[in-house]
Design a protein around this nucleic acid. Sequence first.
DNA 1: ATCAAGACGGATCAGTTATTCCATTTTGTC
DNA 2: GACAAAATGGAATAACTGATCCGTCTTGAT
Lengths: 277, 277
Amino acid sequence: MDNDVSLPRDFDALRTMILDRREVLPKRLAQIAAYALSNPDEIAFGTAASIAQTAGVQPSTLIRFAQHLGFDGFTSLQSVFRERLRERQVSYEERLSALRGDTHGLSTNRVILNGFLTAASHSIETISHNVEEEVLESAVNILAGAETIYLLARRRSYPITAYMAYAFGKLKIRNQLIESTAGIDPEILSFAKPSDAAIAISFSPYASATIEHAAALAARNVPVVAITDSAFSPLAQSAKVWFEAAEGDFSGFRSLSGTMALAMALTVSVAEKRRSF
Amino acid sequence: MDNDVSLPRDFDALRTMILDRREVLPKRLAQIAAYALSNPDEIAFGTAASIAQTAGVQPSTLIRFAQHLGFDGFTSLQSVFRERLRERQVSYEERLSALRGDTHGLSTNRVILNGFLTAASHSIETISHNVEEEVLESAVNILAGAETIYLLARRRSYPITAYMAYAFGKLKIRNQLIESTAGIDPEILSFAKPSDAAIAISFSPYASATIEHAAALAARNVPVVAITDSAFSPLAQSAKVWFEAAEGDFSGFRSLSGTMALAMALTVSVAEKRRSF
DNA sequence: ATCAAGACGGATCAGTTATTCCATTTTGTC
DNA sequence: GACAAAATGGAATAACTGATCCGTCTTGAT
């Protein structure tokens, strides 16, 4: 349309072209541009309709986007994304060595990054094998029935509950994150009733505050769902149901990836369950 | 349909299966088998009609071929070929293949959990391929040289900086988490000097506070390292270096796994670098 | 040579595709 | 603030998709 002279044949050229025009693109077209560059595989394999949906636009906008760049339709734009995947296949062996133990010629930084990525992927694997159907179901049941969900975690586990608090909030599920900025946690927790529930997360070495709070709640018949690392964890004793989430770690820091995925799954499952009430 | 118990979910398994049956396959089906193994890319991208033509058979034969192998149609066979191109990390693919695809007979809870686990593993893969050596190095250099590291993130990105704050603390690296509980963020940030540095994390839809703070810091020559989702992000403009971390998501919630691993790698790399001073 | 069982080709079908078109909204200019 | 131009959403459409079906052909055991 407005650029017939140089229509990009390969992905890099296309990428550059899009980045060049980023400021002059209309809103929806820019939205697609951003999506396309960060999810090129989706463009390569998806259909106009499916891509439009995940990118949050209309299919027609996708076609306009392609035409705006000089292609004669979505299909020709898509073929550039497909070409990219075919070519990349060549350098695939070199990529493989990146994550394997092969640290030759890699910078320290890269070794560290790979370490964390590997630890993360191990966590995910472990979770997927260790989580049992019944445990998952009863945890979801407990939480879905709760009036308020209390979130207990400290230190390295705190980010998990922070994200859960955010997600519960978005999903309009009442929750209370125990953060102790003012040191009044015991008072807040004293409001918890048996019709509420708590999620407690802690790994060895266990944060004493989390353990104590969980025990206190359990003593008052508030059901506790725990995520911890073994059956010997003091959390497991206070918990009505508990998940074993042995996280991989690298140089002393846990990956959190598996636990994070489990936590989000719990969150969304609870919302899903409530919707069916 | 001579369906065996297990139908291959990844390309290698499919390849082995086809090679096993090579002699027992009827003529036309063998013809397709040979074509498929030597032109896997064509199968991945083509349509049943186009593949049939270049392979010299009828489209219906292609579908019969797929069904003969135990798939329920050409489409499911094709998805195996597509998966092969999509997953650059073969080892991950093998490990996680159990997770993907069939949701038959799984509980809703399990489907949701698998969704998050898959999204997490995608994130990790993406990060491992998108992070470039130079970007990583210059980010580490900036941060290692900083007196105080300011951590900016809101909402869904907040858990990342929360964990970084914890890890930096453990590693005795001076840092300041911008949390705004008292609404005095601008004042705290006004202390930042060019000899400090900031890490800003935000994904679309970007948290305005993070964007503004990052821009303010950049304007005062405080170097900003950003983690965001595309070149279109307003964060990328304020940043001296920025990482692209397109996180997989499931039912609207980002996985955070890849970003978390990247953040931890940055944290530890900075500590490592400082130790060498 | 016969004949049943499987393999095959090709017409057909329901569903989906990319695309077009037009009414409406948004944007930019004077 | 008014107006033209551009952008956008969404319904409509024609082409094409994968899959099915059935008559014909091939194969191989008897």
